[in-house]
C-alpha cells in the first residue's frame, strides 16, 4: 500500500513541460509503481494535507497492454475525483498482471475547508508515457493534459 506522502518523496520527480504536467516515478515492483504513479497524480491535483482514508472503494481496470492499463488506471482515479468530488490518501494494488489491475483506494469527499485542490487534470495521455524495468527497479513516466 502506498500512502499519499506529505512531503515530496524521493521516488517522485517532475519533468519540465511547457504546457502540461509530467511526472516520473521509480518503484521496486510494477504493483508499487502503479500505486506511486497514482499518488503522484494525486499530488498534482491536490495538496496532501488533510486528506484522510475515511472510505474505501474497489477499482478494477483493464488494458490491452501495461501502458493502456496505466492510462486507464489513472484515468479512472481522475474521473472519480472530478465526478464524485473525492480525494484519495491510500492506494493498494491487489492484483496486477499487465492487462488487469484490481486495487483498493481510500480517501474521502472533498471538503473545501480542509482540502486544497491545486489543478485540474483534463486527461492522462500517452505522450512521453514510459514503463520500464531498469537496474534500480521499475520506472514510469506519465504526462497529464492540464
Amino acid at each position: 500500500m502506498t500512502r499519499l506522502p506529505i512531503t515530496e518523496p524521493e521516488w517522485l520527480s517532475h519533468v519540465d513541460h511547457t504546457a502540461d504536467e509530467c511526472i516520473e516515478v521509480v518503484a521496486p515492483s510494477p504493483d508499487v509503481l502503479f500505486e506511486r504513479l497514482a499518488a503522484g497524480w494525486m499530488l498534482v491535483v491536490a495538496s496532501p494535507h488533510g486528506i484522510e482514508p475515511r472510505e474505501a472503494w474497489a477499482v478494477e481496470v483493464e488494458g490491452s497492454d501495461p501502458e493502456e492499463l496505466l492510462v486507464n488506471w489513472l484515468g479512472e482515479l481522475n474521473f472519480r475525483h472530478q465526478c464524485f468530488h473525492l480525494v484519495f490518501a491510500e492506494f493498494s494494488v491487489l492484483e496486477y498482471d499487465g492487462s488487469v489491475l484490481r486495487a483498493e483506494i481510500r480517501g474521502e469527499a472533498i471538503d473545501p475547508t480542509r482540502h486544497e485542490i491545486l489543478a485540474e487534470v483534463k486527461a492522462v495521455t500517452y505522450h512521453h508515457l514510459r514503463l520500464a524495468q531498469e537496474a534500480d527497479g521499475w520506472r514510469g513516466r506519465v504526462l497529464f493534459d492540464m
Binding site: 517532475h14 519540465d16 513541460h17 511547457t18 504546457a19 504536467e21 489543478a119
Partner: peptide, 9 residues
C-alpha cells in the same frame, strides 16, 4: 499567445 514557461517554472 501560447505558454512560454512550464507551470513549475
Amino acid at each position: 499567445a501560447g505558454r512560454a514557461m512550464s507551470r513549475h517554472a
